[in-house]
Amino acid sequence: MASQVRTEVVEQTTTFTLRELCEQSGVHAEYVIKLVSYGVIEPVEEPAAPEWTFDLESLARLRKAQRLQRDLKLNVPGLAVSLELLDDVQQLRREVERLKQQVRQLTGR
């Protein structure tokens, strides 16, 4: 089977307009605007809302926000706090891993 698998090439730099972002994730523009105003996602540049563009990380984050809201019934401020804390935890986890590894190397174990 594996030999029949076609290789998919990843699109490199994708950006989305506000409209595309909404269509892509099935939400209203108001919802995106609210998420932006709470700093949950950020447009690449910040002209007026109709000209916003978003990168792939914003889209992925929007999807994550949608899953969390759907599954855990969060409101937007709660969502903003959760996502920030999740980011912090992840960053700390990486930092701990990195430091642990450096300690291992320094102590030769």
Partner: peptide, 16 residues
């Protein structure tokens, strides 16, 4: 799927 991953991917980054 077989996916061609571009160089320079960082931890936590997404591809679509």
């Amino acid at each position: 799927l077989k996916v061609k991953i571009p160089p320079g991917m960082r931890e936590g980054q997404h591809i679509r």
